[in-house]
Simulated scan of single mutants.
Amino acid sequence: MDTILDTKLEKMRAVFAPMRSLIVAFSGGVDSTFVLKVAHDTIGDSVLALTTTSPTMPDEDRESALAMARLIGARHLIVESNELEIPGYAANPLNRCYLCKHNLFTVCEAKGAELGIDEIVDGLNLDDLHDYRPGMQAASEKRVRHPLVEAEMTKADVRELSRAMALPTWDRPASPCLSSRFPYGTEITSEGLMKVAAGEKLLHSMGFAIARVRYHGDVARLELEQSEIARIFEPATRETVEREFKKIGFRFVAIDLKGFRSGSLNEGVIANAVKPANPVRPPRIQV
């Protein structure tokens, strides 16, 4: 393994070593799975993975969270939480992610108090600091720590170390919540979430590994990998997509010629975003 990566991994283990107990806000994705693995390897059953599920969570994400916690051998708690019930969330404001993360960390905080767990950590990595992440403010308010940031790990670092540890998530595409498919200001509804989920499930079943269905009312705007865009214009594929998307409830299907961009709905927002001055929080004071 790369010496620099070795150093970063040891730095991350040193974050966990003094902790008496902690909760990992766990989605089952690349970053939080790696965080859970390193935390569990360091302090064992003093770690609890906590996953909140709701209509905004893709089915495959819930399945991944269950499978990865089981693979690692970590204690795992599932808490049902419907983000659409959070005041203001469904209106899809620019700080929607803040509302979601505040709810998640509030759940973690409550479970920590109930179970006598001292710390809460998440999977924020160094690259995330350059995106529009209003959820960072919620983490700051709840004194959630970011071990990957503290260890100066990028997404590429996490993937490389995950592969070395034989974690199946090492090459998994990013999978943000389904609400991220709705442009800011577009109301998020249960019906809309189901349409998006059904559309992405269809595309995945057709062999499009990375696909986003951006919700624009009657229009589904599809973002695919650049190398896959030509394939969707093949007559049989095009006809299937058009037919099935109409069954799902969309009137029109549009293909984004720029291809897939993670967080594309943040374009134009990042430059105006206000980020917390210090995303790395100090340890909680033991009382």
Rank of each mutant, 00 (worst) to 15 (best):
82 N>M: 12
31 D>N: 02
274 V>I: 14
76 H>V: 12
36 L>I: 04
134 P>I: 07
234 E>A: 09
38 V>G: 11
90 A>V: 14
285 I>N: 05
59 D>E: 09
283 P>T: 13
205 S>E: 12
281 R>Y: 03
99 L>V: 08
154 T>A: 00
148 L>I: 02
68 M>F: 02
167 L>K: 04
241 V>H: 02
278 N>P: 00
168 P>Y: 07
254 A>Q: 06
82 N>S: 14
64 S>M: 15
106 T>K: 14
204 H>G: 10
17 A>I: 04
119 E>T: 07
182 F>P: 00
110 A>E: 10
149 V>W: 00
155 K>T: 05
194 M>C: 06
255 I>N: 07
265 L>K: 10
181 R>M: 02
185 G>R: 06
200 E>D: 08
232 I>N: 03
260 F>H: 15
102 H>D: 12
235 P>A: 03
173 P>T: 13
93 P>M: 00
157 D>N: 13
44 G>F: 00
204 H>T: 14
207 G>I: 12
141 E>D: 08
54 S>A: 08
165 M>D: 09
230 A>V: 10
19 M>G: 11
160 E>T: 15
181 R>I: 07
42 T>V: 08
234 E>T: 14
172 R>H: 04
263 G>F: 02
76 H>A: 05
91 A>Q: 13
114 E>K: 03
60 E>R: 14
193 L>D: 04
134 P>L: 10
244 E>I: 08
276 P>M: 08
108 C>S: 03
107 V>E: 09
137 Q>S: 13
129 L>K: 04
44 G>S: 06
209 A>Q: 08
15 V>F: 13
23 I>T: 06
235 P>I: 01
8 K>H: 03
25 A>V: 01
22 L>P: 03
113 A>I: 04
34 F>L: 11
269 V>Y: 09
233 F>I: 12
282 P>A: 08
95 N>I: 02
284 R>Q: 05
33 T>Y: 06
235 P>N: 03
123 G>T: 00
125 N>S: 01
114 E>H: 03
251 R>M: 13
62 R>G: 08
198 A>P: 05
151 A>T: 11
272 N>C: 06
131 D>C: 14
110 A>K: 12
217 G>R: 00
151 A>L: 07
188 I>T: 02
208 F>S: 03
89 Y>V: 06
30 V>M: 09
101 K>T: 05
280 V>P: 08
252 F>H: 12
242 E>N: 08
67 A>Q: 13
5 L>F: 11
272 N>I: 06
152 E>G: 06
248 I>C: 03
21 S>C: 11
2 D>A: 14
42 T>G: 10
208 F>N: 10
47 V>G: 01
271 A>E: 12
228 E>Y: 01
230 A>M: 13
67 A>H: 10
47 V>M: 04
246 K>N: 12
136 M>A: 00
191 E>R: 09
129 L>R: 02
261 R>V: 15
53 T>C: 15
54 S>Q: 00
25 A>M: 01
129 L>T: 12
175 S>D: 09
35 V>Q: 07
194 M>R: 14
253 V>P: 05
55 P>H: 11
138 A>Q: 04
190 S>K: 15
27 S>V: 02
285 I>C: 07
174 A>Q: 11
32 S>G: 08
180 S>F: 04
56 T>Y: 09
166 A>C: 11
167 L>T: 01
